[in-house]
Design a protein around this nucleic acid. Sequence first.
DNA 1: GATAGATCAACAAT
DNA 2: CATTGTTGATCTAT
Length: 710
Amino acid sequence: MTTSDKAHTYTPFPFRLELFPPSLQALSKQSTNSREMQGGGSGNNSEPIIDKTRVLDVKPLRTLAPVFPSSSEAPRFVSASPFGPHSSGFSPFYPFSAPQATQATPDLNQQTHTTPAAPLRSFRGTEYNGGAFSGEAGSFDGSKGSAKRKTKFSLQKRARKSRDLDFGLSVDDNNFVVGVSLSERDDGNREVVHSIRMRYDALRRRLSQLEDAKESPVGIIRRADLKAGNILMTKQVRTNMRKRIGAVPGVEIGDMFLFRIEMCLLGLHAPSMAGIDYMSARNDLVEEPLAVSIVSSGYYEDNADDKDVLIYSGQGGAANKDKGATDQKLERGNLALERSLRRGNQVRVIRGMKDSLNQALKVYVYDGLYRIQDSWLEKAKSGCNIFKYKLVRIPGQPDAFGVWKSIEKWKEGLSSRAGLILPDLTSGAESTAVSLVNDVDEDKGPAYFTYVSTVKYSKSFKLTQPAYGCNCQKACQPGNLNCSCIRKNEGNFPYTANGALVCRAPMIHECGPTCPCFPNCKNRVSQTGLKVHLEVFKTKDRGWGLRSWDPIRAGTFICEYAGEVIEKVSQGGEEGDGDDYVFDTSRVYESFRWNYEPGLVEEDSSVEAIEEPKVPSPLVISSKNVGNVARFMNHSCYPNVFWQPIMYENNSESFIHIGFFAMRHIPPMTELTYDYGKSRVGEAEADGGSTPRGRRKCLCGALRCQGYFA
DNA sequence: GATAGATCAACAAT
DNA sequence: CATTGTTGATCTAT
């Protein structure tokens, strides 16, 4: 097989050769070698050698006659798929040094995917994409300042009006069903993928919230993940339904998932449970199954220690309550993997592992494309035969699972973090250490400041409105409307059982230090300190930034904005004083949609939660001299973190805190960013194209970067 | 009191 | 249309 063979096969997709040019050749050679070696026993590599002589009673897989000449590596039957995986949008990410934008907004850097220029924007207000609520954002164009409040209410009305037609399966004139066009259901892109993911998780959190509030007998298993998935599947809010070999448009290496259903909705891995996804491949000679993706979840005895090599077990044969373990058969997924080995096909690999923050939960990472290099039969612990497949990662792809592995080692102290300056820059002020790292230059740390973990109000800024807490005697129970703290949240417990924020709201009311409920009350999420292991690190061109060693699930509380509440400086030239460390609720922030769509939940047929934050009076916090990790978070026009006002009382006084929450799932080592907003002063100068006076050039790198901020 | 293992209902794909 | 096999939350034992 030669490169030109490939080029010929993939003629419609010229990106293909740009993808992993050196590795393709290298790997082709490898797999050819391994095929040649098959008759002779073990390969010539140094991977774990399995004693094949111990396997009895079963014909070796190798007796299967190859269906195609070995040169037919490139499967013709998929020639119609949009292989340009990240084709157009292929932008490698550099987990340890890249500017945040590369990771946080890789999708927006390129938009030349195969999706036809469908009038996506013309769809009603339920459509939103990632952080930029484009459908609505348009209405903000040119709007200054006060326009925001007005829109907050009109947004509600419009959304409700648009829901008059049944959200069922009917397709409207534009071929859209709930915001996903027909063509996007076949072939996705980054925007659609982000949109579906956010809608899914918002719906899932809302369903969890409703379940939490029900008084259901213990032992009942609640699967909000499946329920949300089922609703979106039924409504056709899904993409990449056309199966394909190779990359899936819109899904990037390193993307993280919490539920199998998420991967079904995105077309990354269709089966909701089975570990092997395959498709029937046909040419003039035969029809045979070929594997397209696998999930290594820990259910079988896989070996997933190596970041580039995965020893994967076939499916079936596992013991369950009705029957004991049996030998696996060479059928379905197992057969597909075997065929893919012969054909040298790429196989997508999703690696599952325990969530470092909660061992009971699982996280999945899309680790890119692998090729199957070998297969054999092996005795499982049960004594039955199981198939084993050796998958090797195609070189040249950005690290994904490898990053997680490295972090594991840093945590265990097996290898130290390169460039570590301080193991804990908070000197114990936070319950979780915050690393200080610079692997970019010689800078030994940010300028001196005093670390505090919460916001400090001076006397004159105390709010004087009457403050009262709840009277709950234990932990506040979701659904208990006798709890005044819950009533203040419109009767909804603001957090799921896992502690994720369900919805944005004008204000979140938590139980305060003087509420009588137990300290383990789940309505104190923002008061229990840092939970994720954060790292302050030197960016290439934007000073210090913040990122996490732990995966962060959408809705997770990250930290609050600590500092000193200050009297708002009269706007004007004075801001040139150089206080870059200011948070100000009165700035103009990009509107975006994060909450669930009520039309998708029976209980919420006509209620729409208002998202825009609302504080009684502008709150300005300076963290220049006194602050916490939040002061290191950089701005992005396409952020992955948002702020949310939170109020709770202490000794009959209410205080507002600014909490930061994850907008979407954030894989480890991805820079955390939020929208700094724009000050209203100088807004009129903002149309000139260049950075207006007093503003700062934005380096976030997002496609929709506005060019400046602050 | 973390933590591993057992249990069980859910449900998309076939 | 019934079957299949794996999942994620919860329960139980250590």
